[in-house]
Amino acid sequence: MPLRFTLRQLEYFVAAADCGSIAAASQKLNVSSPSISTAISQLERELGMPLFVRQRAQGLKMTEAGRTLAAQALRVLDEATEMTRLAGAVSSTVQGPLRLGCLVSFAQIVVSGLRRSFEDEYPAVRTSQVEMTQAEIFAALRRAEIDMALTYDLNLPPDLEFHGVKNLPPYVFLAPEHPLADRESLTVHDLATYPMVLLDLPISSEYFQSFFTREGLRPVISERTRDMAVMRSLVANGYGYSIANFRPLNDVSPDGKPLKFVPLVGELRYLAMGVLTVPGATSSSTNAAFVEHCRAKLNE
């Protein structure tokens, strides 16, 4: 059965019972007498019984039901105060479970290391992760299935909060024997006539292709993959170049072949990597600590 009264109504009821009059309770709580009187009347109506006998000359006299319920109401208010205290203690301590969502492209490069270093710094925290697309991240945050997510600042909805931690310039991935591999930097005009291996993830693929359309060009897409590791292997084996905003920590593909990474320059929008949350989530010390940990570790 849903609650039919509020803690505020209980507070006014207990104060009136303790003081013996509406006027005295009004002074104690610094609340107007009509507000207290209305709250008590609403509480009596919801409970279906009188709590006081109103005596014009003598103030309030509690009924037998009122005395019984006043004692219980005081315990409820004490428990509510304790719950508030505990919530404050938990929110100010870096502890407990932390459920992380992450884009697939981040999962194999940075997330495991961030989790490990965060748990080493805060041993009372236990993290878990799940790899998702951008749309899946939005839905999971709204359903409270995850606490926060590592993602890009692409197509973000207004009901979620993005906390940027690192700017990510684009790189061109190339096999060492590719004709462009020895350049110090490249533009989309340099790339336009060569086969491209597109990292074909939702939203990300549109972002990479926009580099070309902004210049009136179309990339020659020869291969598509949703897996960062597969993309690197295809590039290393000569199936084309690719573009990504996160440079791997080593220059070897998953099948052991070498790769080269050349900065892509021009009028390009850099992506921001960050932590996405529901509004107000960083009021929790654990969540706030993770955001700051990401900033520190990813910008070392």
Rank of each mutant, 00 (worst) to 15 (best):
F246E: 12
A24V: 05
S41G: 14
G66P: 02
V252L: 11
R8M: 09
E223H: 10
S35W: 02
S112E: 10
A57L: 03
E223I: 10
L160S: 11
S92T: 04
V278W: 10
R126C: 15
N287I: 13
A16V: 13
F261S: 00
A39P: 05
Y122A: 01
S283I: 13
A17C: 11
V172H: 01
H189Y: 07
M83N: 14
S128M: 13
V110C: 10
A296W: 10
V252S: 15
V278G: 12
P34C: 08
A57Y: 02
I36R: 04
L100Y: 04
I40D: 05
P123T: 09
F173I: 04
I221Q: 02
N237W: 04
L198A: 01
D227L: 01
A289R: 02
D251F: 00
P195I: 08
F173N: 02
S112M: 10
E161M: 15
R54S: 15
P254I: 00
L86N: 15
P176E: 06
L3Q: 08
A70C: 10
R247F: 02
E300F: 08
S210L: 05
E44A: 09
S26Y: 07
E223L: 07
A25G: 12
R116V: 09
Q95L: 08
P258F: 00
S242I: 02
R226F: 00
G216A: 06
S233Q: 08
K257P: 09
S210T: 07
